[in-house]
Design a protein around this nucleic acid. Structure first.
Length: 150
DNA sequence: GCCAACGTTGGC
DNA sequence: GCCAACGTTGGC
């Protein structure tokens, strides 16, 4: 079992939005970065815990907990010419982009980025590294435990 | 295979 | 809206 951070812009899709979805579940589509794709395709397992992170907003931070709710499968938006995520080089026979379903797991008090930065124990977190732009990142068990005690 | 140009991310 | 960081693209 692994831990992850998945970023989303709350204006586009927030943790509350996830809770309101049918089955409180959503396909994490639109990821178009190979490293992030590889995490979903190769490493995520059903039941992995996801820190749902709000980015590009007035107060960035961890908004709640979710779980990986499916194995990885091809992102259907890559085949849809009308989608903004359409990829003309992808075919159903040779899909390029993969995703997993993510399901609501648990409410926690909001933990801001500012708060995370205060703790020496978290200074090596990939999320906090300078220049990090990946929308999906692994979180170590130690980091997860520490964050849950904040 | 190099690398410059360009685009995107995301905090501030 | 700015800008640093970094990924991707495409010419050579």
């Amino acid at each position: 079992m692994q831990y992850w951070i998945m970023k989303s812009e709350p204006d586009v899709f927030s943790f509350d939005d996830l809770k309101k979805r049918p089955g409180q579940k959503e396909a994490w589509d639109g990821v178009r970065n190979y490293q992030a794709r590889n995490f979903m395709r190769d490493q995520m397992k059903v039941g992995d815990i996801v820190l749902f992170y709000h980015s590009s907003c007035p107060v960035p931070g961890i908004a709640g907990l979710a779980k990986v709710a499916s194995k990885s499968y091809p992102d259907p938006t890559q085949f849809d010419p009308k989608s903004e995520y359409y990829d003309e080089k992808a075919t159903p026979e040779k899909p390029r982009w993969f995703l997993v379903d993510v399901a609501y797991y648990k409410d926690i008090p909001f933990i801001s980025l500012e708060e995370l930065k205060k703790h020496k124990e978290l200074e090596d977190m990939r999320l906090l590294q300078k220049g990090n732009r990946l929308s999906i990142l692994p979180v170590s068990p130690e980091e997860y435990k520490f964050i849950m005690k904040l």
